[in-house]
Design a protein around this nucleic acid. Structure first.
Lengths: 212, 212
DNA sequence: TAGATTGTTAATCGATTAACAATC
DNA sequence: TAGATTGTTAATCGATTAACAATC
């Protein structure tokens, strides 16, 4: 009998873990070895109680009376987030944004390896960015049959996105990092979708500019 | 006596408004004129009750028995988000990502006008992207004295970010759209900060890949 | 031991969901 | 009128905050 490994830690907590990780790395680089929840509160603008509550989800992190050891905590949170588990990704669409990601985003640092790039446009196919040669979309299917694709990064034009997602799901892709403005609709519950939506973000900022 | 116009609508609600706006625009383009909360639920994966509750914050939107008129609702949500209120922004850092934003992001569509771009690198200063000529950082101060800067878009290298933010705040900038991985620390409560953090996002995806 | 600070239970607060009267 | 669907109050659920015993 298989038991569905149900994630009991709330999404809100998980969303904060990368912020902890990043801050701990910064403190480590500053040469700080130990931090109390109160100190972290000031650094992160999260209440000390909240921080302790978050860590508590994953067992004991600190030492009563002495705070948290930064090296140890960093390793542990990194492990929870799976930084040490490498996953493969491909990128679809090598326009400016795709190019920026290929060129500058530290995939390795986050436990990913960008293995291939695809584009439909003749002007970019065959060019090489950061060591990756852009393939034509026509090769996608063949590529998928011979390589494991853990994540597809979507930096495609709006209109093309839905079809590409459908195609990729058919080809077995189960996770998407979506930079397009498209709401990919209720895909199967076993498909993961992480959106980065610039327009949503700037509209939220506009609202606050007008109302705060 | 001035009354502090306290925003009584929760942040969670406001974060959903851009999604509503976007979906309504799509439905409009599909030629659909009316939608019930149940229909929107299917389109957006937000419960029908939740949708009605959200709209209820801003007065009556629909017509009992008939649902919501798409054109009217779209205009209203757009107005709440201030799409019709133009604000000016500048971008600091014209690397690949900055370039991508300049070139492709529909600022006007979201009620913004990108007025100037700054960079420190000799190789981009003086070049022109999408009609904007990149200025050297040394001109920032003079520029700020003569123009209104409502938002500064940050696509700067990590190390430079904090100093640039401090400088911009001195120059009177009160809102930032931050694409760097830097946690800009507890700035004054009258300074707005909207973060887009690629690393946080992809680590969250990684966690779900490993745990879902 | 005294002071500091965690880990964790309990209390509070806020957001989501359910229910239903109002009304098209 | 009957059916549909909103607007809104009440109930539930979950997340944040407070409190404090455990312990370094």
């Amino acid at each position: 009998m298989t038991i569905l490994k149900k994630n009991s830690v709330s999404d809100a907590v998980i969303r904060r873990l990368p912020r902890y990780l990043h801050k701990l790395t910064e403190l480590y680089e500053r040469g700080i070895e130990n931090a109390s929840s109160n100190f972290l509160m000031e650094e992160l603008n999260i209440s000390a109680t909240g921080i302790r509550q978050d860590f508590c989800n994953f067992g004991e992190f600190g030492q009563r009376g002495c705070g948290y050891n930064i090296t140890k905590m960093r390793a542990r949170i990194g492990h929870i987030l799976g930084i040490d588990e490498e996953r493969h990704l491909i990128i679809i669409g090598v326009d400016d944004l795709g190019h920026a990601l290929l060129q500058n985003f530290p995939f390795e640092q986050n436990g990913f390896r960008l293995e291939a790039a695809f584009d439909i446009s003749q002007s970019v196919v065959g060019t090489s960015v950061h060591g990756i040669t852009v393939k034509p979309m026509t090769e996608l299917e063949r590529y998928a049959q011979h390589h494991e694709i853990d994540v597809a990064v979507l930096t495609t034009p709006q209109v093309a996105t839905q079809d590409i997602v459908t195609k990729l799901i058919e080809l077995g892709v189960r996770a998407f990092w979506n930079f397009t403005n498209v709401e990919v609709p209720s895909v199967d519950s076993d498909v993961l979708l992480e959106n980065i939506n610039f327009a949503d973000s700037i509209l939220h900022l506009k609202y606050r500019i007008l109302n705060d």
